[in-house]
Nucleic acid binder design. Sequence first.
DNA 1: ACTGGCACTCGCACGGACGGAGTGCCAGTC
DNA 2: GACTGGCACTCCGTCCGTGCGAGTGCCAGT
Lengths: 340, 340
Amino acid sequence: MAHDDRRLQVLRAIVQDYVSTNDPVGSKALAERHDLGVSPATIRNDMAVLEEQGYITQPHTSAGRVPTDKGYRLFVDRLSGLKPLSVAERRAIERFLDGALDLHDILSRTVRLLAQLTHQVAVVQYPTLSRSAVRHLEVVQVATARLLLVLITDTGRVEQRLVECPADVDRDDVAELRALLNQTFAGAKLADAAGLVPDLLETAPPQLRRLVAAVGAVLVETLVEPGEDRLVVGGTANLARVAVDFSGSLRPLLEALEEQVVVLRLISEVDTGGAVLVRIGEENAHEALSGASVVSVGYGSGDHALGGLGIVGPTRMDYPMNMAAVRAVARYVGQLLAES
Amino acid sequence: MAHDDRRLQVLRAIVQDYVSTNDPVGSKALAERHDLGVSPATIRNDMAVLEEQGYITQPHTSAGRVPTDKGYRLFVDRLSGLKPLSVAERRAIERFLDGALDLHDILSRTVRLLAQLTHQVAVVQYPTLSRSAVRHLEVVQVATARLLLVLITDTGRVEQRLVECPADVDRDDVAELRALLNQTFAGAKLADAAGLVPDLLETAPPQLRRLVAAVGAVLVETLVEPGEDRLVVGGTANLARVAVDFSGSLRPLLEALEEQVVVLRLISEVDTGGAVLVRIGEENAHEALSGASVVSVGYGSGDHALGGLGIVGPTRMDYPMNMAAVRAVARYVGQLLAES
DNA sequence: ACTGGCACTCGCACGGACGGAGTGCCAGTC
DNA sequence: GACTGGCACTCCGTCCGTGCGAGTGCCAGT
């Protein structure tokens, strides 16, 4: 119907204006700035309906309208695509990320890049261990009864753990252990690797048994423990700029970012195949994020995701732009990790 | 002289009161809360002198007095010691740091601990490479003409670099290279290690020459490049609590923390033997820190420092407490790193 | 050298008035 | 039936004037 359609245009216009001006938007201003082809009075009627349906609200009687979470949701789902990045922005992505030295460098550049592109807080998750594969296992003897186990994955991540051995360890045994470990695990997905440990125990030569048991235990712990999933956070300075959107108190949000609970949101979406996920305001279960939106997407090489990255900002944000930026950066990072 | 002495007591009282209340402190309140043994009128005279000398100032006529940077400096240098930590605080340090898994874990725990103890932003520098020694060098062949060089230091830091080789590499050569590298570098201070590369080139068997040259180049780069000095920052949420001290705008400070220029301040003091360094307000050359103070100290095992750690907060902070906390944490971290 | 008293200065909180932006509703028009 | 112009109303934000309280500087007295 003609009405419904125009009403959605009105909603879109409200979201766009409100995002750019931060002022509740009134019917008159709307009629002036957008070619809706109707008078303010008509727009007022549409607004009344939109308000009744819960898409917009008034901060107080006789103020302009402001989108609700539900309004942003509709806007994101049906009223906006992804705003294509400018050439300058695309070039910035390449310039920023090329020449990274190692994994940590890639991720910290990514987070700075995202923060700069979107002017929001950027969050990047380290590649999940379980989705990558073992490239190499290294064993270094650091004391007579102490080994350092270093796990190198095909995503360039390096994990290290100290292993306390039950007894003094022979040099030759270390070499043999190293060979045995690599023979067993090289190329295995980390998710599967833990399951190989029992086999390893069986096939190990007798004199290595106890050693393998100790190392195996630590290895399993390293492989399955997802608590160590690290996060890189950047751009918190951008929060100061939009402090007004958070009713003055940045505290809970900063705390949440440090607690790294946000990562749970980022993680819970890796299965979707490359779609950008937007969580708006109250949709974020966590209370500290009730005034914030999270735009996230999984990155990875090829079909499976290695981790998530995204941004956190006020619900009043430029969704089309941010969604495009997040997706573009994720794609580029995915490529980069596939190469190295 | 009696006057001078009492004037300093007055300054100390002003700093203490102002730090705890955040209100400009007046002569009457001062006389009530402290046993200075004189009347408010006398205190007023002292205050007038202190103001003339530049130790305190009035926000506006007929308000109380507030310490200047110079006033805080005098307070720190001559009027306060380090407030001993409570038993609970000491215990918290142990509880927090014991059981750390690896270097990154130690440092991120440290930064959280410091932030929690001081209620300020905490900053910890990764151990400087040049001060630590090589524990092990690992070479992993990741493609026919591509090696991954992993450097493990005695402080538990792991650095990794890809090496592009001039030609395909033989498996046996990799093993020989590994042995050669460890034989040459094991135990060497990283600062000295770069100097050993030429020797290595001379003594290497002929068939390894080209390989050693490629690896050596990357190794030198890794050893001398101090730009990679990483920083762990935490407790930024604490800034929100003291936002009022920064005239409302946290922006520059947050930006400075992200730019990691603060590390320069932290680094520039490692030579001093364990003394806590305090930089107050304008003493920090960087403009964004003009309203902030930095309390820092070097940490390390034994005589030489491995890196710096400290806190950043408003000039209006509890210096005795924060200095004590920073020193205690640095000592504990130093011990911890010496053990592992 | 210190003290009590006193006049003076300001900043700040309170409160009323005002203007403006925006709304809802209604009668009129195409 | 959908849209429009007009109108009365509401309410927020701002401005301004006032009063109060805290604090000071100075001075005369002990």
